[in-house]
């Protein structure tokens, strides 16, 4: 239930982020016992690189606290869609915060908005939509993969978000977003291999007073076909973009400063020369600097946005 609103203490059943380091964190369910493969109920012990955590012990603890592991410690954080996305086992290709932030902004999602999403996938993006539109809006999310739809539905329930989301198992390219949604959506988001096939359905789902559209596609040809379809149906403000986030790795660098002036003078024959050189060489300067990691995300996907203007007749 820890996704609904900010809360201070861990309650039984909360999903909790066990934060070990920037590159190591886990989402765990705060339940004292779990059922093992043999069907036995056993105490919930979570294993990390820094030893084990008896999960029962974190119930009632304040979020943000430090908790002891058998071989170290970690912090317990309340999950946010950002942290959840980072801890997600990669069930499908997921979209990350920089693209998602742009999607929410461009789709103008705010409390009260009615958003249609396809596909649901891992539900990572759904969590962002839900944060932005609750408590007065509604998310309708579609996936053609039945197990995935079921899994997402169950997850939203456990996260306390059921009131604001409807999960559909449906092939939207062929069947559309159901007649019930005709003219109901403020925004439609597509992450499909053939977005152009779903554009006419998005057109139907958007309100008569107009709305916003987004399609996320890894390949440029998908965007090209999507834009052709959007243009045909009278969408405007069509723009395509990429957002790439760069992380800065911050470090202090120490550089030797070498002295070359002394070379202009003949050496004296005594020992001092060597010590003079090595002394000169030992001078250093420190710089607080940063650089990109060696490998950066070079491409996530093309984001295509469009507006359905108000009062376009829908045949």
């Amino acid at each position: 239930m820890s996704f609904l609103k900010p809360k201070t203490h861990i309650e039984k059943g909360d999903v909790v982020i066990l934060y070990l380091s920037v590159s190591s964190m886990h989402a765990i369910e705060a339940v004292p016992e779990i059922v093992n493969k043999k069907g036995e109920t056993i105490p919930h012990i979570f294993q990390t690189n820094y030893g084990s955590l008896k999960v029962e012990n974190i119930i009632g603890v304040e979020y943000g606290s430090r908790v002891e592991l058998s071989k170290g410690w970690a912090h317990v954080l309340q999950p946010t869609p950002e942290l959840w996305t980072q801890t997600l086992p990669h069930r499908t290709q997921i979209i990350y915060t920089p693209d998602i932030s742009m999607i929410l902004h461009q789709l103008e999602v705010r409390p009260g908005a009615v958003v249609v999403e396809s596909g649901t996938g891992s539900g990572s993006l759904s969590h962002y939509f839900l944060r932005a539109l609750k408590p007065t809006g509604q998310l309708h999310t579609f996936d053609f993969h039945e197990a995935r739809a079921d899994q997402a539905r169950e997850e939203f329930r456990r996260h306390g978000l059921s009131d604001f989301v409807t999960v559909y198992h449906r092939d939207v390219c062929n069947l559309g977003f159901t007649d019930d949604l005709d003219g109901k959506a403020d925004a439609v988001f597509l992450d499909l291999p053939a977005p152009d096939l779903a554009v006419p359905h998005a057109f139907k789902a958007l309100k008569l007073s107009g709305g916003r559209f987004c399609s996320f596609s890894p390949c440029i040809e998908q965007s090209q076909r999507c834009i052709q379809e959007l243009t045909k149906l009278g969408f405007n403000e069509i723009v395509s973009m990429e957002v790439l986030q760069q992380e800065s790795v911050i470090k202090t660098r120490t550089l030797p400063v070498i002295d070359l002036e002394f070379l202009k003078q003949p050496k004296s024959n005594d020992a001092p020369t060597n010590s003079e050189e090595s002394k000169a060489s030992k001078e250093v300067k420190k710089y607080l600097t940063s650089s990109n990691p060696q490998v950066l995300p070079g491409h996530t996907g093309f984001l295509t946005f469009a507006t359905l203007p108000p009062n376009i007749p829908k045949a």
């Binding site: 920037v22 942290l83 965007s223 090209q224 973009m241 800065s248």
Partner: peptide, 21 residues
């Protein structure tokens, strides 16, 4: 404060037109 990240972004818009993308 934990989980510190310093980030910046590249934003590129595309012209997507038949044969002129």
């Amino acid at each position: 404060v934990t989980g510190l990240h310093l980030t910046s972004n590249w934003l590129r818009t595309y012209q997507i037109l038949p044969n002129r993308t």
